[in-house]
Measured scan of single mutants.
Amino acid sequence: RLRTTITPEQLEILYEKYLLDSNPTRKMLDHIAREVGLKKRVVQVWFQNTRARERK
Rank of each mutant, 00 (worst) to 15 (best):
F47M: 03
K17E: 10
R51L: 14
D30Y: 12
A52H: 08
E35F: 03
K40W: 12
D21I: 04
R41Q: 15
G37Y: 00
T7Q: 06
W46N: 00
S22Y: 01
E12W: 04
S22K: 06
F47S: 01
K56R: 02
V42Y: 03
V42G: 03
H31G: 11
I6S: 02
K39G: 13
I32Q: 00
S22C: 10
L2H: 05
L29C: 07
E9T: 09
N49I: 13
Y18C: 01
L19C: 10
T25R: 02
T50A: 12
Q44M: 08
T50Q: 13
R34T: 11
R34C: 07
R51C: 06
Y18Q: 01
I13Y: 11
D21E: 13
R41W: 09
T4L: 08
R34L: 11
L38H: 00
H31I: 14
T50L: 08
L11D: 13
L19A: 09
Q44R: 07
L2T: 13
R51A: 14
N49R: 04
L19N: 10
R51M: 11
V43L: 05
E35M: 06
E54D: 09
L14Q: 00
E9Q: 08
E54S: 06
L11R: 11
R41Y: 12
L2P: 07
V45P: 02
I13V: 10
I13K: 14
L19S: 11
N23Q: 12
Q44H: 09
G37N: 13
L29K: 03
K56Y: 15
I6L: 07
I6P: 10
N49V: 09
Q10E: 02
S22I: 04
D21T: 04
Q44P: 01
K40A: 14
A33G: 05
R34S: 14
S22G: 10
A33Q: 02
L2W: 04
V36D: 06
G37P: 01
Q44E: 15
E9S: 08
V36C: 07
Y18E: 00
I32Y: 07
A52C: 02
K56G: 14
R34V: 11
D30F: 05
Q10M: 05
P24Q: 00
I13D: 03
T25L: 03
K39T: 15
L11A: 10
T25G: 05
L29V: 11
E12H: 05
N49L: 06
T4N: 04
E54C: 01
I13T: 08
P8C: 03
R51I: 13
P8S: 04
W46R: 01
V43H: 03
M28Q: 10
P8T: 04
K39D: 13
F47V: 00
T50H: 11
Y18V: 01
L38T: 00
L29R: 05
E35A: 07
T25K: 08
V42C: 07
T25A: 05
L19F: 10
L20N: 09
S22P: 05
R26Q: 15
E9Y: 06
T5K: 05
V45F: 02
R55G: 13
T7G: 08
K56T: 15
F47P: 00
W46Q: 00
T25C: 14
L19W: 07
G37C: 11
T7V: 07
L29Q: 09
Q44G: 11
S22Q: 06
L20I: 10
T50S: 12
I32M: 05
F47D: 04
N23H: 06
P24S: 00
D21F: 06
Q10H: 04
Q48L: 03
Q48C: 06
L2G: 08
M28A: 11
G37S: 05
L14Y: 01
I13P: 02
D30R: 08
K27T: 08
I6K: 01
L19I: 14
H31K: 13
R41P: 14
L14W: 00
Q48G: 14
Q10A: 05
T7R: 04
R1M: 13
V43P: 01
T7E: 15
T50V: 10
E35R: 02
I13L: 09
W46Y: 02
K27H: 13
F47I: 01
W46G: 02
T50G: 05
R55M: 13
I32V: 07
E9F: 05
I6H: 07
N23W: 07
E9I: 07
Q10C: 01
N49Y: 04
S22A: 13
L11H: 11
L20E: 09
E54F: 12
K39W: 01
V45W: 04
A52W: 05
R55I: 12
T4G: 10
R53D: 14
Q44K: 11
M28Y: 04
R26G: 08
T50F: 10
K56V: 06
E35I: 08
